[in-house]
């Protein structure tokens, strides 16, 4: 092989390339400053400031000016009345309760439907798995609004689905209880049903992720040691999937509790959920302080599940 002629000349003096002040700043720390600073400033301005405005609004006083609030002047600087009303008026407390109940029931139903599905996805032949996973994710990419809408079509009084259920009902119960159709729309039942439908992928995917990681030799070891399959599930599979259950549960509960679209379309207007209440106070009653106070209370309510979620996320990340 030829002697590489150009390779032996490593004697050029070490001199840093000179650049302008800007180039030097960019090299030293400017680049990281730009990377951090860009999104940071954006989020401060368009997320943190608006959020702080909500907090400030919640202690403002409602006026009939535009914008319909004021702090100080002839009204007190801090007005705690919205909070007092949230905590004393049964309407608001009921709304909180309805939200937590609906979101909680939806979460539990999602768990009971989603867990066997996730486990099924892990156990089916690998050639099927990718297709089935895609089928779980597919609804997630389609419009949320249209998925809610699809159920409106099914639950309506004249739909084939309602008709089928009505026939089944009339067949099973005494003749006196017969109905012309089942009143499904505009009820908490409808809200929970649609929530389960729209949020189920959020439950299945983290469960699938945590179940897929499990070492199947553990199952075999437990069976080898004399456990029956059901026992193995309780002793081995279930305990190890707790992080997935918590993650999925919170991913369903948190958005469901603050949901606005579903209760607005299929919910019962006389027992509103909290999201709808915020929207109504804001747009209909033009009571910004009240809407803001409820919003702040809702966020406080979300703190616990969120902490729970991030705690288990950190744990799951650490054990990988």
């Amino acid at each position: 092989m030829a002697e590489p002629s150009t390779l032996r000349d490593a004697t050029a003096p070490v001199e840093p390339r000179q650049g302008g002040a800007f180039a030097r700043w960019l090299d030293r720390r400017g680049w990281s400053d730009i990377l951090i600073g860009g999104p940071y400033i954006w989020l401060l301005l368009l997320f943190l400031v608006p959020f702080l405005i909500v907090v400030a609004m919640s202690v403002a006083t409602k006026t009939s000016t535009a914008p319909p609030i004021s702090w100080g002047g002839e009204v007190p600087l801090l007005n705690w009345e919205p909070y007092q009303r949230v905590l004393s008026d049964g309407l608001y407390l009921r709304a909180f309760l309805t939200s937590v109940m609906n979101a909680g029931i939806a979460m539990i139903l999602c768990l009971f439907i989603g867990y066997p599905m996730a486990l099924g996805l892990v156990r089916v032949a690998p050639s099927w798995r990718n297709i089935l996973l895609m089928l779980v994710i597919l609804p997630f990419w389609t419009s949320f609004l249209l998925r809610v809408y699809a159920w409106m079509g099914l639950m309506g009084r004249n739909s084939w689905f309602n008709g089928m259920l009505t026939d089944a009902w009339n067949f099973l119960v005494p003749i006196d209880w017969a109905v012309r159709s089942i009143p499904m729309m505009n009820s908490n039942f409808a809200v929970v049903l649609v929530m389960v439908y729209t949020y189920l992928p959020f439950m299945i995917l983290p469960l699938y992720a945590s179940l897929e990681r499990l070492d199947t030799t553990l199952d075999e070891a437990a069976m080898d040691l004399g456990s029956r399959p059901a026992r193995v599930f309780w002793d081995v599979t279930l305990p190890q999937s707790v992080p997935g259950i918590i993650a999925g549960g919170m991913l369903v509960f948190i958005p469901a509790a603050g949901e606005l679209v579903i209760p607005s379309l299929v919910g019962n207007a006389s027992s509103p959920m909290i999201g709808r209440l915020i929207s109504d106070e804001f747009s209909m009653a033009r009571d910004w302080p009240m809407a803001s106070a409820i919003a702040v209370m809702l966020l406080l309510l979300m703190v616990v599940p969120t902490m729970l979620y991030s705690h288990y996320q950190a744990k799951a990340g650490g054990s990988k």
């Binding site: 490593a10 050029a12 003096p13 070490v14 840093p16 390339r17 090299d27």
Partner: peptide, 16 residues
């Protein structure tokens, strides 16, 4: 010191 030059503060991209 590399080839007589103090390398303190010389960035990776400027080092031979």
């Amino acid at each position: 010191f590399l080839d007589g030059r103090d390398m303190a503060g010389v960035q990776p991209w400027d080092r031979p």
